[in-house]
Nucleic acid binder design. Structure first.
Lengths: 339, 339
DNA sequence: CTGTTAGCGCCTTCAC
DNA sequence: GTGAAGGCGCTAACAG
C-alpha cells in the first residue's frame, strides 16, 4: 500500500499477499511448473483481490513478443477498410492481442513513417489494408515480422495477399441475371484504371460466353459515382432500348441506374433487372426494392488475415502469393420481383 | 553479431560499437547529462549505422509513459466513428504516439475487457468514441489516465465530453430554409429515443419561433432509414400539400424524402426544399442535385479529443463537462436551385 | 513442491 | 565527462 506509486498491483504484491515467493506466484498464475493446488488457489484469489493484471510490457521485454499487431491502412474513410478492420479486430481481440491503427492517408512517406514506428514498437505482425483491388508496392521482404496484405494485393509474389475474387464476382452477377431469364445485358463500371472494373468485366464475359450471350453495347467506363450510373444507364437505354438487365460494378452505379430506369418508365425488375456490387448496406438495403449485389465478405477477409498473422507468429510457415477469397451473391428486389 | 537472437540492435550494441559504456550511450542519444560532443557524435553515428531504435517496451517499463493512446469504440461499422478516428489519428500520429484500436461492439463486457487491456498496456490516455449523441455510462473517475468522450458524451459531468451541437444544427437548418423564403416547414426524424432526433428538433423549434413560424404537422419519428424518409414524406405531402420545405434529421431520410417528392411531381428545390443532416458524402454529394446538409465536423471533434489528451498528459488540468462543438451548414442543390 | 538468482533493454542516480 | 550499479515487472533456469 505504501510503496506503490501508481496504485497498479504487481506480481510481487500478489506474491506477498499470498505469502509466497515471486516465482511461485508467477508459476501459479501461468500454470507452469508444479505448484500445490492449495498454493495456486491462494495465489489466484490474491491476484483476483488485488485486481492484478500482468504487465504486458514486462512480459514482452522477456518474450520478445509484444502481443500487438499493426494495422496499416491508406484511408479510413473508405468503406472497404472498415469491415476488414472490424473482422481483424474481432479475430485479434479475441486473444490478448491489441491492434495499432495507422492511417497513411495515401502518402508513401507517412506509410514509411508508420512502418518504422510499428517495427520499433516491436509489433508481432503487420496487416496492410488497401482500398483498391489493384496491386500496391510491397513493403519488402526484410521485415522481421510477418506481413499480410488485404484487399490490395502486394505486387511482390513472395508476399501473402488476400483479396476478393472479382472474376468470380462478375461471373456470379451474370449467371444470376441469366438465371432470371435475362438475355440482353449491359455493363456499367467506374474508372477503367481500377482492376475492380476490368476483373469483374472479365468474369462477366466468361459467364456470358458460357451462356452463349453477348454484351449489349460496350462496357461503360467513367467514374465510380451515382451520377455516372444515371448517365450511363440513360445512354444505354436510349441506344439499346431492348436491354433487359444491367450489371453495375458498384452499388452506387446501380443506384443511379435504377433512378434513370424509373424515370424512363422502365419497371425494376420486371422490365429491367439491375445488379450492383459491394453489397454496401446503406445503399443496397435501403434502395426502394432492395438492391441485388455481390458481397466480398470483407469481414472474413480481415479475420483470415489476422489468423494468418497468428499462425505466422506461432512459427508456421506463412504461405505466399495472391489468394482470391470467395464472394457471394445477395439477392434482393432489383433482380427478382417481390411478392 | 553472434549473440543477438532476433537481429534487433540494442543499446549495448550501440555502446559497444561506439566504444563507450551503456550509460554514456543512453545519455548521448537522449541528450541528457553532459557528454562530450565528439562522444555524442560517435554514439549517434553508431546508432544510425546499426539502425538502432530504442525498445519502447523497455522504456515504458521504466518510465510511466508508453507513447500510446487507446481508442475505445462501440461500432466500427458506424459512419460517425470513422471521421472522428481519422481526426484523432491525424493529430496523434503527428507526434510519436500510436493508437490502440479497440472495438467493444456494443458489449459492456468487451468494453471492460478492452479497458483493462489498455490500462495494463499503460496507455497514456483513452478516447472513447460512441455512435449516438445520447449519454453513455462513464468509465469512472478512478482511471489513472485521462479520458475524453467523443460524440457520445459521458453521463458523469466530471468527465470531459466533446459532442456536436445538435441544437445549433437544427437551428441552422431552419434558418437556412427560412432564408430561402420557405414558410411551411415539416420535420422528419428517426427513432425518437435518440437525442439526435429531439435535440435537432429543439433547435429547429427555437428557429421557427424566432421566425414567427409554426411547424406544419407534428414531427415525424420512426426509424433512421431511407424507407421512412420516403413514407414520412408521402404522408406529409398528402396531408399538407402546402408544405414548401422539409427538414430531415439525417441524409438517409432526406434521400428518401427527395425520392417521394419527385415521384409526386414536386420539383426539388423549386416546389419543395429539402435539407438533410450529417453531410454524409456518399449520399449527400451523389444525390441528383446535391443535398444541402449539416456537417458536424467530426474530424475536428476527433482532433480536439486527441489534443486534450496530449495536454492532459503534459500535466494540464483537463476540463470537464459536455462541450458542444460547432456544426456547419453545407448548401447544395436541394435547397437552392442550381443555374 | 518452493524459493533464489539472473537477466530481458533501458534509464537514472551516484561515484570516479 | 564517463562508467558501474540498481531496478522497472516479469519469467526461466536452477537449487533447495
Amino acid at each position: 500500500m505504501s510503496k506503490r506509486k501508481s496504485g497498479v498491483p504487481t506480481l510481487s504484491d500478489v506474491a506477498e499477499a499470498a505469502g509466497v515467493s515471486l516465482a511461485t506466484a508467477s508459476k501459479a498464475l501461468n500454470g507452469r511448473g508444479d505448484v500445490a493446488a492449495a498454493t495456486r488457489a491462494r495465489v489466484e484469489s490474491a491476484a483476483f483481490e488485488l485486481r492484478f493484471t500482468p504487465n504486458p510490457l514486462a512480459r514482452g521485454l522477456l518474450a520478445s513478443r509484444s502481443g500487438t499487431v499493426g494495422l496499416l491502412t491508406n484511408d479510413l474513410e473508405g468503406r472497404f477498410v472498415l469491415p476488414i478492420l472490424a473482422g481483424a479486430e474481432d479475430a485479434l481481440g479475441a486473444g490478448s492481442v491489441n491492434v495499432f491503427l495507422c492511417d497513411a492517408q495515401g502518402y508513401a512517406v507517412r506509410e514509411q513513417h508508420h512502418l518504422r514506428a510499428l517495427l520499433s514498437r516491436r509489433v508481432d505482425g503487420i496487416i496492410v489494408v488497401g482500398s483498391r483491388t489493384d496491386a500496391r508496392r510491397s513493403l519488402g521482404q526484410e521485415l522481421s515480422v510477418p506481413v499480410v496484405y488485404v484487399y490490395s494485393p502486394s505486387d511482390d509474389d513472395r508476399d501473402l495477399s488476400l483479396t476478393p475474387d472479382n472474376l468470380t464476382g462478375g461471373q456470379l452477377a451474370i449467371e444470376h441475371l441469366v438465371s432470371c431469364g435475362r438475355k440482353r445485358i449491359a455493363y456499367i463500371a467506374g474508372d477503367q484504371s481500377y482492376r475492380a472494373a476490368t476483373d469483374r468485366w472479365e468474369g462477366a464475359q466468361a459467364a456470358l460466353r458460357a451462356a452463349d450471350l453477348e454484351l449489349v453495347g460496350a462496357p461503360m467506363y467513367s467514374e465510380w459515382s451515382e451520377h455516372w450510373g444515371r448517365d450511363a444507364a440513360a445512354t444505354l437505354l436510349e441506344r439499346y432500348p431492348e436491354i433487359d438487365a444491367i450489371f453495375c460494378a458498384s452499388d452506387q452505379l446501380a443506384r443511379g441506374a435504377i433512378d434513370t430506369a424509373r424515370e424512363l418508365g422502365r419497371r425494376v425488375p420486371e422490365d429491367l433487372a439491375i445488379i450492383g456490387y459491394d453489397n454496401w448496406l446503406p445503399l443496397a438495403a435501403n434502395s426502394r426494392q432492395g438492391l441485388t449485389s455481390i458481397d466480398a465478405n470483407l469481414g472474413e477477409l480481415g479475420k483470415q488475415a489476422a489468423e494468418r498473422i497468428f499462425q505466422a507468429i506461432d512459427g508456421a510457415e506463412i504461405p505466399h502469393g495472391v489468394h482470391h477469397l470467395p464472394v457471394r451473391l445477395v439477392i434482393r428486389g432489383s433482380t427478382i420481383a417481390r411478392r
